[in-house]
């Protein structure tokens, strides 16, 4: 089990690196577009659509990782009360499992939208990047997020000691 978690942590480095690259590319491209447009009358035509794609890559690379680390924005007003009642573990487990399971439906729909974009032949304006590639990437990310959240919930229930040093925050 420990090795499995170590493996998961190692695997999370890849999407994080991808997100970092996308973000850096976004910054560099925006900068280059402004300079090229102002100084050389040669704007990057595809800047807008590349911005969109790079943002999608960044966000959906990080989503499963954030979900695994409990990094979603939440309100911790009653944490103290839950703690005192010793309900924290149960709450963490149930919320993770419920959230993971309820992502199944959006995942299915995203898969369908991917197929639809492909069937209609949707592409981006200038570079003709097939839209279904982007939607497909998003689908995989949301599916992974669902799986990861259910897994984390189960670990909270059955093997909470694993989370103490490793995955928590």
């Amino acid at each position: 089990m420990e090795t499995l978690i170590a493996l998961a942590r190692g695997a999370s480095r890849l999407p994080v690196a991808l997100a970092c690259l996308a973000l850096f590319a976004l910054m560099a491209m925006t900068f280059a577009d402004v300079i090229l447009r102002s100084a050389f009358n040669a704007p990057i035509q595809a800047a807008t659509e590349l911005t969109r794609v790079l943002m999608a890559v960044m966000v959906f690379s990080c989503l499963p990782v954030i979900s695994a680390r409990g990094g979603h924005i939440a309100v911790d007003l009653f944490d103290g009360i839950f703690d005192r009642l010793h309900l924290n573990r149960l709450r963490e487990a149930s919320i993770n499992i419920v959230c993971g399971v309820m992502l199944v439906w959006p995942t299915e729909r995203l898969w369908m939208l991917t197929g639809r974009a492909r069937g209609y032949g949707d592409v981006t304006e200038y570079l003709s990047i097939p839209v279904h590639l982007v939607t497909g990437f998003i689908t995989v990310s949301v599916a992974l997020t669902a799986a990861v959240m259910v897994a984390i919930g189960l670990v909270h229930l059955f093997a909470p000691h694993l989370l103490d040093e490793d995955l928590a925050r």
Binding site: H72, I73, A74, V75, D76, L77, F78, D79, F82, R91, I95, V98, C99, M102
Partner: peptide, 10 residues
């Protein structure tokens, strides 16, 4: 739900 600490997005 939010006060139960469910993440806001969910």
């Amino acid at each position: 739900l939010v006060l139960m600490r469910m993440p806001i997005v969910f």
